[in-house]
Amino acid sequence: MTVWIDVCHIDDLQPDSGVCALLEGQQVALFLMAKTQAIYAVGNFDPIAKANVMSRGMIGDLGGEPMVASPMYKQHFNLKTGVCFEYPDVKLKTYPVRIDNHRIAIKLEAE
């Protein structure tokens, strides 16, 4: 079973920057890439720094892949797959995102 959970209005996102959402106890970082209008959702926990800070990282692309750089120690993570560019066995969780009537919803897999 999976559920879509309503999070916020699209205007609550910060273009080219991030916000963090709380979803049933999970912290999810949401990014809006203004140029491509793509929205990405990944885990907010930085597995290297061990702090909930990913939503405060800078975004952009590396070799064409959308990425977020950890604000703490600057490792890069692929926003689509969550995989760390520097340490491929380190990964952020990723979540599907949907826009419906200007509202953002995130899909949670049931535990």
């Binding site: 910060q14 273009p15 080219d16 920057s17 890439m33 203004a34 140029k35 491509t36 990282g57 800078m58 975004i59 952009g60 692309d61 590396l62 064409g64 959308p66 990425m67 750089a69 600057k74 890069h76």
Partner: peptide
């Protein structure tokens, strides 16, 4: 491309040095 934390931060700094606009304005915050 879309930029990355290296060029964005450098350009953010140059724009701030040169124009001295508020750095958390919409165009600059990222």
């Amino acid at each position: 491309g879309l930029g990355c934390e290296v060029c964005k931060q450098a350009v953010g700094s140059i724009l701030a040095s040169h124009w001295n606009d508020y750095i958390l304005g919409k165009a600059h915050v990222g």
